[in-house]
Design a protein around this nucleic acid. Sequence first.
DNA 1: TTGGTGTAGTTAACACCGTTAACCAAATTT
DNA 2: AAATTTGGTTAACGGTGTTAACTACACCAA
Lengths: 199, 199
Amino acid sequence: MSEELPLRDQILDISRQLLYEDGYRALSMRKIAKKADVSATSIYLYFENKDHLLHTLIEESVEDLSLFIESKALPISDTIERFKAIIESYVEFGLNNPEKYEIIYQVRPDAMARYPKEKFRKARRCYELLVKTIEEGVSKELMEVEKPVVAAYSIWAQLHGMVSVVLNKRLDSRINKQEFINESIEHVIQGFLVRTTVS
Amino acid sequence: MSEELPLRDQILDISRQLLYEDGYRALSMRKIAKKADVSATSIYLYFENKDHLLHTLIEESVEDLSLFIESKALPISDTIERFKAIIESYVEFGLNNPEKYEIIYQVRPDAMARYPKEKFRKARRCYELLVKTIEEGVSKELMEVEKPVVAAYSIWAQLHGMVSVVLNKRLDSRINKQEFINESIEHVIQGFLVRTTVS
DNA sequence: TTGGTGTAGTTAACACCGTTAACCAAATTT
DNA sequence: AAATTTGGTTAACGGTGTTAACTACACCAA
């Protein structure tokens, strides 16, 4: 066959696949190599070590997440609607792309400790988008938030908690998944909007 | 010395210590054994395998978490105050006992997948306490929540997201930790209270 | 006292792991 | 034609979880 991917890309593809199929702990350089029909050490021609390989995968997934959120949220001009879209699309991405989401957050914590902090923050353009949206909401007096930068982080954290509870199947069996997601999103959002009169 | 602990307890203690010092990935049966001055295989006399050993540690930490929350919240009779106390003490425990908190949530995900789901849920008496408190709040018309069981889970998830962001040092360097925690807790709480008139 | 039956540990070994060092053959450059 | 770079290889080191087979010792019945 002539349409062969460069080995580096093959390695990334295979890693993603193995990571999703068998989980993080089961991922080994030797397995990747065997699947690529290459010696284990060849991987080291393209990646400094296992951590660097994982970091590359994380970067790619973060990029995908950012693109997805931007595609959903950027076109929306209404501030509140955009706010909701960011939140909903984050969760949607997590639940629909577990293999990528898990790469971002589940490959941890030792590998992450060594992950260059800057790269991570920089890559999250969607975080800056959320900050901007909150600032916009505050200036329009639609939201009440002291520090948008902090609020944005708090939102990510809360969303991440939700998504990981579902993905890790830690959800109580009595609880319907979609119901849990909807109610949680609703409360995250409500926690940040200006409170209006009731009854 | 005569005050020697039974080997099983020694193993648990050493594991906890190693887990906190060097992290999950660095924990090995052989290291535990060496520190206990015993052969690696002796561990298998008391624990079926590494997973079971970890599960035992998880159980213990969950128990501690539950006890701490109960100690803070049970004495409080005011519903809203108890609600807040549960939330605050959860976060407090997480931040003050990273070694235990991390055992609960950071030892993952493969090990967790094999963790008997029932045990986990059963152990979390504090979860049932939260559900009860929310139900109480709803009946007193202090909170508006459709399904307390779902709401409680949503709250745990959100809190877990916050705590893990802080513990994993994923917090943006521009953000003050305590500020982040306070604002996040505030918004989690506000998301569930009955909205009152503004201005 | 002899013998049997657990109990609490041992050593040796298997099959895997990440990573390094040394090597090699083909392609490319000089 | 010679030198260098590219893209791989094999062999090995020290580590991993786990199993199988063993040993030394305590206890208890005959």
